[in-house]
Simulated scan of single mutants.
Amino acid sequence: MTIPKLQVYFLCTGNSCRSQMAEGYARKYHPEWDIQSAGLEKHGLNPRAVQTMADDGLDISHQVSTLIDDDYLFSSDLIITLCGDANDKCPVTPSNIKRVHWDLEDPAKITGTEEEIAQAFAKTRDLIKIYVQNLE
């Protein structure tokens, strides 16, 4: 008996940071799933997100920032929004698609010293890691 592959879509505003980190962890912890991330806009892959993930031993430097693909969206089993903007503006999906919202602070908007910014990225990364590890 073949178990169907779960298709998961992580959505954020710019697909540069939070959704990219979630995609990276999902690929690590759930390699049997079909995983993608996207945004309402394309902001490019945030170098601090890449570094923060590398600090935890995960290379996401090959990932790219993409816009929401309606075909992938409407064929997904699970859609996870990682910011209020994506949650509010994500297209309406059929009731058979499970939607979950993780309201995470955008570390790219943090101002302060390099250390404070790095800590904000690490905090968001660590929360995403826990959420992704707990997905079933």
Rank of each mutant, 00 (worst) to 15 (best):
P94K: 09
Y9A: 02
S37C: 08
F74D: 02
Q36W: 02
H101Q: 11
K42C: 12
L58S: 04
K129V: 06
N87W: 12
E136A: 10
L6T: 09
S37H: 07
I130A: 12
L40S: 00
T81F: 06
F10C: 11
T113V: 15
R125L: 03
S76D: 12
A108R: 13
K5P: 04
K109R: 14
E115Q: 12
A49W: 01
I80Q: 02
T2E: 10
L104C: 11
Y29K: 02
V50C: 08
H43R: 01
L82S: 09
K123M: 07
A49D: 00
A22P: 15
W33E: 02
C90N: 13
L58C: 04
G24Q: 01
Q119C: 13
M1F: 00
W33Y: 06
F74N: 08
E105Y: 11
P31W: 04
V92Y: 13
D59T: 05
L58H: 06
G14D: 12
L11V: 15
N15L: 03
D71Y: 08
I130D: 14
R27E: 03
A118P: 12
S37D: 05
I117H: 01
D103N: 08
Q7N: 05
S75R: 04
K129F: 06
S61L: 06
C90A: 15
T124C: 13
L11Y: 06
L67D: 01
G24W: 04
A54W: 04
R18M: 03
T81H: 05
I110T: 09
L67M: 11
E116Q: 13
Y9T: 03
M53W: 03
P91M: 14
G112N: 05
E136H: 11
L67V: 13
D70V: 05
L78A: 02
D126I: 05
L45Y: 04
I117E: 01
M21Q: 04
I35T: 01
P107C: 13
E105A: 14
K109T: 10
E114Q: 10
M21S: 03
R48N: 11
L40P: 00
E41Q: 14
S95W: 14
D56V: 05
Y29F: 14
K98P: 10
H101W: 15
P4D: 01
V8G: 04
E115R: 06
P31L: 09
D56E: 04
K28W: 02
A49P: 05
D55K: 10
V64G: 03
P47G: 12
E114R: 08
D103C: 07
K109Y: 11
R48K: 14
E32M: 10
W33G: 02
T111W: 00
K5E: 08
Q63V: 06
E105V: 15
L45H: 02
